[in-house]
Design a binder for these strands. Structure first.
Lengths: 144, 144
DNA sequence: TTGCATTGGTTGCACGTGCATGTAGTGTAC
DNA sequence: GTACACTACATGCACGTGCAACCAATGCAA
């Protein structure tokens, strides 16, 4: 099965890689959602946004453009808009107008948001270590 | 930042790996859903189920237990039940009673299902080659 | 100025998903 | 036989998502 059809082996490799990626993604994102949700009332994407905002390291009051967030978090702009809405309602971020271009908005962490992120971060790292690091990611945390 | 805290570097590696996985998953699954949807009226998970059924290589009329399908496709049991319902309504699979254990069901490909899978398979492989193979997966197919 | 294309963000809607629950069938103990 | 725990699948419901449509602001051209 290795020399007859030049396309078949490459396909098999690709499919195997894709399935492995699917399995690791499913196990990790599921575990992440569960742990972050139970312990910190955060979804996976919520945490990801808080992390980006925290990494930006902007002084309190300053924020990131929603557009810039959408580039790093893999969400549609509508989903991001609603996600920011949720975080804002929870008091974790603030929307502020962008003076330079009044179409845009800045999204900034509040103190509560910074605190929540600091609390949730160890959980996030633990789950990653448990599912990506170990080989136990096979069937440990499927949605089923 | 490399010798002071023994946990920090490992964390950074894990996070980097996780973000890479997220990016590749988002790009590939999004492209897959779009291409399979446009060209073959199939979702990613639908195709995955058809593929598992096809790989089982059972004689026409025989099928897989829904439970066995749930193990390989990363879906909850309820999601799988509805997915099978959709495929059945589309005439691509058939539900048949399991005589031995009448709680269970067999899911079997119909001829139409086999045909649809054969048609969709090259598209699936092309997308995989285009997003997993190339380094162009960075920003080519985000939902945004 | 007016007009038009483009960009940034929000909202109506349909859809797929997971959780909890319901229903039918199985196996075991009494 | 009856009762009870358990399994396999289906369904009600709430929620997050993407798409398309929308509105406001900007930039450019005539």
């Amino acid at each position: 099965m290795t020399g007859l059809d030049p396309a078949a082996p490459a396909d098999a490799d690709l499919v195997a890689e894709w399935r492995s990626l699917l399995a690791r993604h499913a196990a990790t994102s599921c575990a992440l959602d569960r742990e972050l949700g139970e312990r910190h009332h955060l979804g996976m994407s919520e945490f990801e946004v808080l992390e980006r905002l925290s990494e930006a390291g902007l002084p309190a009051g300053q924020g990131l453009r929603a557009q810039d967030l959408a580039l790093t978090v893999h969400l549609s702009q509508s989903a991001l808009s609603r996600l920011i809405g949720r975080l804002e309602k929870a008091g974790l971020v603030e929307r502020t107008l962008c003076e330079a271009d009044r179409r845009g908005i800045f999204v900034a962490l509040t103190d509560a948001g910074r605190t929540r992120y600091r609390e949730a971060r160890p959980t996030h790292r633990d789950v990653l270590a448990g599912t990506l690091g170990d080989a136990s990611a096979e069937n440990s945390a499927d949605p089923a």
